[in-house]
């Protein structure tokens, strides 16, 4: 495992841990998701350098476009949740439990 591999893996796993265990605000969950996507962006961009593959340089751009779409969907849902529930705290999302 190279240092680069270790660093983006630990960044991803920290983001995942934050998403799984820090459950107070929806906004912090979305930020953790975005952090995971950015660590994947680093991983894909450096993979093309590491393996010297020229045909792979568009992949990080595609990933970035999709993660931007995902982040904007998440923010739209944040607004919708704030309008229907009055808050963005995740503990208020309890209407469907039983």
């Amino acid at each position: 495992m190279t240092p680069v591999h270790f660093s983006f893996s630990s960044a991803f796993i920290l983001g995942l841990m934050g998403l799984a265990f820090h459950r107070t605000h929806l906004l912090s969950a979305l930020l953790c998701l975005e952090g995971m996507m950015l660590s994947l962006f680093i991983a894909l961009a450096l993979w093309a350098l590491q393996f010297e593959s020229t045909g792979f340089s568009t992949a990080p751009m595609l990933l970035l476009a999709f993660s931007a779409c995902e982040a904007s969907t998440g923010l739209a849902l944040l607004v919708a949740t704030a309008r229907t529930h009055g808050t963005d705290r995740l503990q208020n999302l309890n209407l469907l439990q039983c």
Partner: peptide, 23 residues
């Protein structure tokens, strides 16, 4: 409220799962 809550939960799980698959 119920539909928006369901959508938020679905979005969070699916986005996490897709990111884990790519990772």
């Amino acid at each position: 409220p119920r539909a928006v809550e369901a959508t938020t939960k679905y979005f969070l799980t699916q986005a996490t799962a897709a990111a884990m698959i790519l990772f």
